[in-house]
Design a protein around this nucleic acid. Structure first.
Length: 259
DNA sequence: ATGACGGAGCGTCTCCGA
C-alpha cells in the first residue's frame, strides 16, 4: 500500500497538478492539507474519475483538510474530539478516516505566527488535543498514523540554516516537546529519503529562489504507531512535484507499506 | 534547468503562510 501526504496550498488552484501527480504516483491514499475550500466546493468528481473517494473537512478560504482513498473510507471524523478554538473560531485542521484497515489522520497544525502571538499558544493547545486523540484512538488492532503539515521542524537539521531561525516558530523547544509527547504516546517519525541533496525537506518558500537553492524545511511529517512503522518498506519526498509551473510550496511525502 | 511569492475574497487591497 502507498500512502502520501501533501499540503497542496489550495485544491482549486492545484487541481491539475494534483490529478497529474495521482496518475503518476498512484497512491492508495493521499492526505491533503490547505485545501482552502468548503466541503461543498471540493472537486469530488475529478478525483472520482481517477478512482478516489474523498473525505473532506473545509470551512472556507483558510485551512481545510481531506483524505483521498481508492481502498475505501470509513469512520470519518471531522475535527479533533477535544479541538481548541482560536479567538472563538474553530478551524478545519484535522480529519480522521479508516482506509484499507489503517486508521489515518490528515492534519494541518496551526502555524503559530510568532512565539509571542496568541496563535503560538493556540498551536501548543492544538497539539495537546492531537495527542489526546492519538491516545484515545491507538488500539491493538489497526495500524495508525498521523500525516500532515505539522509546522514544526523536529531537529535543527530539518531547516536549511538554523541560525536564521532564532526566536522563530517551528523550531522552539515547546513545539519540539509537543512532538516528543506525541512520540511518547506511541508514535514514531517515518523519516523519508530525499530524492536529491542531503536533507528530506518538504517545504520551500516561493520567494527568493528558495527551491533551486534548497533553502527548505522538513515540516510535513508522518507519525505512525509500531504496526504502521513496522510495515514501512520505503519513504521519500517527491521533490519533483515542487518543480514546474504552478506548484504548491510543499512537496508530497510518500510512504510504501507491506500490510 | 528547479528560477526571483502566491492564494482567496464583496477584492484594484488585505490577510495569511513559515
Amino acid at each position: 500500500m502507498r500512502i502520501a501526504t501533501w499540503n497542496v496550498n489550495s485544491i482549486g488552484a492545484r487541481l491539475p497538478r494534483v490529478l497529474e501527480w495521482l496518475e503518476h504516483a498512484r497512491p492508495d491514499v493521499l492526505c491533503l492539507q490547505e485545501t482552502k475550500c468548503t466541503d461543498e466546493s471540493f472537486p469530488h468528481a475529478q478525483f472520482a474519475e481517477l478512482g478516489y473517494e474523498a473525505a473532506v473537512y473545509g470551512l472556507g478560504r483558510w485551512n481545510g483538510v481531506g483524505v483521498l482513498s481508492r481502498v475505501g473510507i470509513e469512520d470519518v471524523t471531522r475535527g479533533l474530539p477535544t479541538e481548541p478554538a482560536f479567538e472563538g473560531e474553530t478551524d478545519a485542521r484535522a480529519v480522521g478516516a479508516t482506509c484499507g484497515g489503517i486508521r489515518l489522520w490528515s492534519v494541518y497544525v496551526p502555524n503559530g505566527r510568532e512565539p509571542a502571538h496568541p496563535h503560538y499558544e493556540y498551536k501548543l493547545r492544538w497539539l495537546d488535543a492531537l495527542r489526546e486523540t492519538v491516545t484515545t484512538e491507538l488500539d491493538e488492532v489497526r495500524p495508525f498514523a498521523v500525516l500532515g503539515d505539522f509546522n514544526i521542524a523536529p531537529t535543527d537539521a530539518d531547516v536549511w540554516d538554523i541560525s536564521l531561525f532564532a526566536d522563530s516558530t517551528h523550531v522552539t523547544d515547546p513545539e519540539r516537546k509537543a512532538l516528543a509527547l506525541l512520540r511518547d504516546a506511541g508514535l514514531a517519525d517515518v523519516f523519508p529519503r530525499p530524492l536529491k541533496h542531503e536533507h528530506p525537506y518538504t517545504y520551500w518558500d516561493y520567494r527568493q529562489l528558495a527551491f533551486p537553492k534548497n533553502r527548505g524545511m522538513r515540516i510535513d511529517l508522518v507519525y505512525g504507531d509500531s504496526r504502521f512503522t513496522g510495515a514501512v518498506t520505503d519513504a521519500y519526498v517527491d521533490r519533483e512535484a515542487r518543480k514546474g509551473k504552478g506548484p504548491s510550496d510543499h512537496a508530497p511525502v510518500v510512504v510504501d507499506l507491506d500490510v
